[in-house]
Amino acid sequence: MRNRVLRDHATAYLLLLPTLLLVGVFHLFAIFYAFYISLHKWSILKESYLGLANYAALITDPEFRQALVVTVWYVIGTVPVGLAIALGVAVTLFRPIRARGFFRTLFFLPYVTSLVAAAAVWEWMYNPDYGVINLLLTRAGLPPLRWLLEPTGVFRLALDPIGIALPEWAAGPSLALVSIIIMSIWSGLGFNVIVYLAGLGSIPRELQEAARVDGASEWQVFRRITFPLLSPTTFFLVVIAVIRAFQAFNQIYVMSPNDPTTRTLTMFIFQEFYASSRVGYGAAAAMALFVILLILTVAQMRYGQEKVHYE
């Protein structure tokens, strides 16, 4: 009997070995190593121990602060707007209509498209001179814009023509960042739609039908029944979308590599590490990103436990 237990243990750990080794080294050990690096002056090689000096420097670094603000705008721009559009599309696609499969495939297509290729196309569409978006704007009688090349805040851009000059702090995200946000919403739409469709499919039809028979309007049915019953799906999507938005890299790297008004935390980390070889400092910024995400996710889980309506 004892032999059997021993053999089971040996087998189990042998089966786990490849996963434990790889995940252990490249994920678990890596995170402690990242913390260790962040405590040092480290360019190509380790130079000297600094304690928490890198973190102290981060707090007063205006570029890091700007990266935080840009990231927050990026999250605000992609998550609520992106999910609202996805919900609208999903509710529409859920109606018994023709060609539903076709539209589902179409809306999903951007999601399987590589972000590098998609970003290259959008960059070309946004081109102020030869781009198709400005062509459509001018055809519609609107003024052309400079899109990815426009570092001015969108609120200021919107209010300038009517004579209101906003101060710097109220200028809002740059048009360049908003252009990237629009592209990111397009890219992630399919995933959100598919998950919302799955959520809609799990809501019992009887409730909605009963409300309709009682004379509730479609909007009331949506507002009072469908949307509350979808809250677990919405919650899941918000958590995933926030994590993803904080980690967005590929499209920003391709579309706007050097504009500080589009430099998110991820770009900041990458540039400190890759372009400036300030490895220790980059690692400290990465740890900051980790802590922010951890706090946000835990806070969302807490909130979810209280507010999300599970059947």
């Binding site: 890596a30 995170i31 190593y33 990242a34 690692a283 740890m287």
Partner: peptide
């Protein structure tokens, strides 16, 4: 763990 956090240590490894 976000990928950006393990990027630097993994590169050094």
């Amino acid at each position: 763990i976000p990928f950006e956090v393990i990027l630097i240590p993994d590169y050094i490894l």
